[in-house]
Lab assay of single mutants.
Amino acid sequence: KEQQNAFYEILHLPNLTEEQRNGFIQSLKDDPSVSKEILAEAKKLNDAQA
């Protein structure tokens, strides 16, 4: 469930490039146990690119 939530949120971050988004999603698939950390990174990058 946590992985699904992170997946959904990353898909809807407006400021990520397609490449960045795909990278985060691939990381989620590779290691779902760190989905919280991956989501935090994605949000940080999204904010930095706002």
Rank of each mutant, 00 (worst) to 15 (best):
44 K>P: 01
19 E>W: 05
36 K>Y: 07
6 A>N: 11
13 L>C: 02
6 A>S: 14
24 F>S: 01
12 H>E: 11
43 K>S: 09
29 K>S: 05
30 D>T: 14
30 D>S: 12
1 K>N: 15
11 L>S: 10
32 P>I: 12
23 G>K: 11
10 I>Q: 01
29 K>L: 15
22 N>F: 10
47 D>N: 06
1 K>P: 15
50 A>P: 07
34 V>G: 13
26 Q>F: 06
17 T>F: 06
13 L>E: 00
5 N>Q: 14
46 N>Q: 03
2 E>S: 02
50 A>F: 14
10 I>T: 01
10 I>A: 02
40 A>I: 10
31 D>A: 12
47 D>T: 12
14 P>D: 12
6 A>E: 08
10 I>V: 10
4 Q>L: 03
3 Q>H: 10
12 H>K: 12
30 D>G: 12
15 N>K: 06
30 D>I: 12
7 F>P: 02
15 N>P: 00
16 L>F: 01
44 K>D: 13
41 E>W: 08
30 D>Q: 05
20 Q>M: 04
35 S>Y: 15
42 A>P: 00
15 N>R: 04
19 E>N: 06
10 I>N: 01
15 N>D: 11
33 S>K: 12
39 L>T: 07
44 K>I: 13
9 E>N: 12
33 S>G: 07
31 D>Y: 15
13 L>Y: 12
10 I>L: 07
24 F>M: 06
41 E>K: 08
40 A>G: 09
9 E>K: 09
27 S>N: 11
8 Y>Q: 04
16 L>Q: 00
5 N>W: 15
42 A>C: 02
1 K>V: 15
1 K>I: 05
32 P>A: 12
2 E>L: 03
26 Q>M: 09
36 K>D: 12
1 K>Y: 14
44 K>E: 08
30 D>L: 14
12 H>W: 10
41 E>C: 05
17 T>W: 04
4 Q>M: 10
9 E>A: 04
36 K>N: 11
45 L>P: 00
41 E>S: 14
34 V>N: 09
48 A>K: 14
17 T>V: 01
45 L>M: 08
31 D>C: 04
35 S>W: 15
43 K>P: 00
5 N>S: 12
36 K>T: 06
45 L>H: 04
3 Q>Y: 15
21 R>W: 02
25 I>D: 01
42 A>K: 00
